[in-house]
Design a binder for these strands. Structure first.
Lengths: 248, 248
DNA sequence: CAGTGGTCTAGACCACATG
DNA sequence: ATGTGGTCTAGACCACTGT
């Protein structure tokens, strides 16, 4: 019996900051996932179990889980159960990798790391809302589609959040590594897109000419608990690929 | 009594193409909105009314309306009722206008129409999935933020869908005009973004130099009933603004 | 005050997956 | 056969809105 309550005493109605029960349940479950009680890919307890554990009705648990499904935090399968979402499959990679060939199928990009270092980087610290004195791990890498370099990017994270990150073999899907090895699960990102001119250095890496137009994607990624955990600036050739965005 | 049924005879279970009741209700309500039974901004019948009208429980109506809320098709206000979403307020404009100043508040763009014509335009017909012989209305215009031209765009729609569109004073928010005057409500769009080099003509309009990097936004807009109703290509200066995208 | 949507509960039946 | 999530129902109480 792990009651969600109190917080909602029927007495003190009209209180500001009131959250409905199903949202408290959601937050409780998210917290447990963030804390590693259930790891990505793992099966959650069934709805009736959670309901009795938390002291609420099954319908309330269902509403909480439905919200989490909409947020891509869990996957539900009829007859199987509810699973913590994984980042390692193609679908989850594509959730954040929005570069698509103009013609032909979507494909998984390759990665080629150029440089990894730990530095004081005030600009990154500012983006991540942490002290400018905090050490930052900086990763520079290229990404390839169909064997051709399309992206040059620079990734900045707080070193203290990812101890030993520099020594890891940087995998294709960084967010999977963050989640598996450091318990930091990226669930959403805010991106700013611009068209910029390629520098000489970028042009060389990307097989373009200086001054060629590149798509710059400036992304801040947020973890389950709402912290800013990564700042990434990608510069992309878009002559044969495009950035796909669905607006609703 | 306007039954939703049959379609779901309990007898023929396991039928492919099965849709749950609440989705049939949703589709029925969407159809009525698309058909103009309820106009944008208008109040819908209450949940109990809809439930008895459609011969389902209130909970099922609620689930349908919740989906429509998530799709920005209706707005619900406790104590007031459920309203058909409007496109004319700033929030709805911003749903599709994603260009934001790098510093400072979001603002509503001005529009300056350069040219309106009706032509045979095979490329547009292909994008809209209609016959290449269908006449197309082409609108070319500039959009300004803080008095400065930031966007040059070319908009193509099927002339038959918008009779007399050329004679209209083109307003700031085209989608509001589509909805009010032609009963075509845009509810979502698919966009492809690229970085391109400005042509001499674009450079002149945008106050830039030929070859300067521009952000190209290639958008197909869909109406409530799922038809492709507009193809629009925008070319944007992004030196002091950016395209904002939230990924989840 | 009456009527609306928002929340919460309890229980039924279904389709799907696994043993 | 059992247990899971998916759907559907019925009814309760609440908070908000207008009269």
């Amino acid at each position: 019996m792990i009651q969600v309550q109190p917080e909602n005493e029927r007495v003190a109605t009209n209180m500001i900051g009131f959250r409905p029960l199903y949202r408290q349940v959601r937050d409780t479950l998210v917290r447990r996932i963030a804390d590693g009680v259930w790891r990505p890919g793992q099966l959650l307890p069934s709805e009736p179990e959670l309901a009795t554990d938390l002291g609420v009705s099954q319908g309330t648990v269902r509403k909480a889980l439905d919200e989490m499904t909409a947020e891509n935090l869990v996957t539900r399968r009829q007859g199987r159960g509810t699973f913590v979402a994984k980042h390692d499959d193609a679908r989850m990679l594509f959730q954040f990798f929005k570069l698509v060939p103009d013609r032909g199928e979507r494909e998984v990009p390759e990665s080629k790391v150029l440089r990894v270092s730990t530095e004081i980087e005030p600009a990154a610290a500012k983006q991540l809302h942490i002290s400018v004195a905090e050490p930052i791990v900086v990763i520079e890498r290229l990404r390839l589609l169909a064997g051709t370099v399309h992206v040059a990017e620079r990734i900045c994270v707080q070193a203290a959040l990812f101890p030993g990150l520099e020594t890891h073999e940087a995998p294709n899907n960084l967010y999977d590594l963050y989640s598996r090895s450091f318990g930091v699960t990226v669930c959403r990102a805010s991106e700013r897109l611009k068209a910029v001119a390629a520098t000489a250095n970028e042009a060389e890496h990307l097989g373009a000419s200086p001054g060629d137009p590149l798509l710059e994607v400036d992304r801040v990624a947020f973890s389950l608990d709402g912290r800013r955990v990564e700042w990434r600036v990608s510069r992309c050739r878009t002559d044969s690929v495009h950035y796909a965005s669905d607006v609703r």
